[in-house]
Simulated assay, not measured.
Amino acid sequence: MLLERRIAPRRNTCIEATIAFGFTKVPCVVRNVSDSGAKLEVAKVTGIPDRFELVVPGHRPQPCRVAWRALKEMGVEYQSA
């Protein structure tokens, strides 16, 4: 049995969004969300900084910090604005 270590439960999603830093915008898909963070799918994680804004249509930009990275996925923790 796996022990759940997350602070908040995650909900599976498939939301097209954008990672924004400086003048750069990288498309991504939000694969799951919680009150404290999200898992993002991208074409590649290289070149994406540790801190950026997650832009989801219909919502205000959310400052994020990368918690972990894999080849085409990353986990982010929401930060205070």
Rank of each mutant, 00 (worst) to 15 (best):
P57C: 12
F21A: 02
V30R: 07
K72W: 04
K72I: 08
K39L: 12
R10M: 06
E53I: 02
C14T: 08
R51H: 09
H59D: 14
G22M: 03
E16V: 13
V45G: 01
F52M: 08
G58P: 00
R11H: 13
A81N: 10
A70P: 10
Q79D: 07
V55H: 15
A38Y: 04
L3Q: 07
E41K: 08
G47R: 04
K44Q: 14
A38C: 14
V42P: 12
S34A: 15
R60L: 13
G22D: 09
S36E: 07
W68I: 05
E53T: 07
A38W: 01
V42T: 06
R65P: 00
E73M: 12
C14Y: 09
A70H: 13
R10I: 02
F52Q: 10
A43Y: 12
E41S: 09
L2I: 11
A8W: 00
R10Q: 06
I19E: 00
L40N: 04
S80D: 14
N12D: 06
R69E: 07
P57H: 14
N32I: 03
L2S: 10
S36V: 01
V42H: 07
S34Y: 06
H59A: 13
V33Q: 12
V26P: 02
P63D: 05
F21I: 00
I7M: 00
R6F: 07
G58A: 12
A20D: 14
P9A: 07
R31F: 10
I48L: 01
Q79P: 03
Q62A: 12
F23D: 15
G47W: 07
R65V: 08
I7L: 04
R31P: 02
T46G: 08
M1P: 09
L2Q: 09
R11E: 10
G37Q: 07
V30K: 04
F52C: 05
E77P: 02
R51W: 08
S36D: 10
L40W: 03
P57K: 10
R51D: 11
I7T: 06
T13F: 02
F52Y: 13
V30N: 09
G22H: 04
C14H: 11
V66S: 05
V29I: 15
R10F: 02
E73F: 15
L54W: 07
V66H: 01
F23M: 09
G47C: 14
T24H: 10
W68M: 07
I48E: 01
R69A: 05
R69T: 06
L2M: 08
A38T: 06
V66R: 02
I15M: 09
Q62N: 02
L40E: 03
A8Q: 08
K72V: 10
E53L: 11
K44G: 05
G47A: 10
S34T: 11
I19H: 01
V42M: 07
K25L: 06
R6A: 03
K72E: 15
T24C: 08
C28Q: 04
V29P: 01
P61C: 08
V33K: 04
K44H: 13
P61W: 02
V30M: 11
I7F: 03
I48T: 00
M1A: 11
V42W: 09
F23G: 06
K25N: 12
C64F: 10
E53M: 11
H59F: 15
A20C: 15
S34P: 09
N12M: 03
R69Q: 04
G75C: 10
K25F: 11
Q62S: 03
R65A: 09
L3T: 10
V55P: 06
A17T: 02
